[in-house]
């Protein structure tokens, strides 16, 4: 167990629900679930979830910390918001799923190499650099996320699309040299660092 995870587990003991309420985006909503399952049935990627959202909620209440945080399921969220608008208890399910994924990622117990986890990381890194996402760099990063050899393969596989997009002026090869960015990229970086610091403090992360 890594440090952050160890500390969290030690601090909350068996009360995983409390941990989720304190530290996960919209986690205080979890307890309001009444197990109707409409979220599970509404998700476009539902068939690929090992644990449906409502089941994850039950698992949280039952203290199944490791199973939840190491689950692949919430990384399947496409942010389509079907679950949110249908939930009879108005749980912000999309956000809770995002929050759980983020928390698992932060504690570094989310599944290693989970593709969405990697893509999300790369996306964030891309935006933090300049304040705006550079689609080309981001795409290349995505292709090379599994290593150089795999990246070449991915890139070759997708090169048809890439070429077509370039032809359609929707992928600019010059972006690799710099591309769009915010003037105040520095301020943005500082601002994000501050936000993280405040949030960590509020959530009781000591490190």
């Amino acid at each position: 167990m890594n440090d952050l995870n160890q500390q969290a587990a030690a601090h909350y003991g068996k009360n995983f629900l409390k941990e989720v309420e304190d530290r996960v985006e919209d986690g205080e909503w979890v307890k309001m679930c009444m197990q109707c399952g409409v979220c599970a049935g509404s998700c476009p990627l539902g068939p690929h979830w090992e644990h449906s959202p409502q089941k994850i909620f039950r698992m949280i209440m039952a203290g199944k910390r490791d199973e939840v945080l190491s689950s692949d399921s919430m990384w399947m969220c496409t942010s389509c918001y079907n679950c949110i608008v249908r939930c009879p208890r108005k749980l912000p399910i999309t956000h809770i799923m995002h929050g759980l994924a983020h928390y698992a990622h932060k504690l570094n117990i989310a599944p290693k190499g989970q593709p969405t986890r990697e893509v999300a990381r790369l996306f964030w890194n891309s935006l933090v650099q300049t304040g705006r996402v550079n689609e080309l760099k981001f795409s290349l990063a995505v292709y090379f996320k599994d290593g150089f050899v795999r990246g070449i393969k991915n890139a070759l596989a997708m090169q048809g699309i890439g070429l077509k997009l370039m032809k359609a002026k929707r992928l600019n090869p010059m972006e690799i040299l710099g591309g769009h960015k915010c003037k105040d990229a520095g301020g943005i970086k500082k601002m994000l660092a501050k936000a993280k610091e405040i949030e960590d403090r509020r959530q009781g992360f000591s490190s």
Binding site: Q35, C36, G37, V38, C39, A40, G41, S42, G46, P47, H51, S52, Q54, K55, N82, R86, P88
Partner: peptide
């Protein structure tokens, strides 16, 4: 045990119910 998520219609006009049986999670 399930709140039906949505209904679609098949070619014969039969309503098709989509959802998950939450007792054990069956789609």
């Amino acid at each position: 045990k399930s709140k039906v998520a949505k209904i679609a219609e098949d070619k014969d006009g039969n309503p098709v119910l989509h959802g998950v049986d939450t007792e054990g999670y069956h789609r």
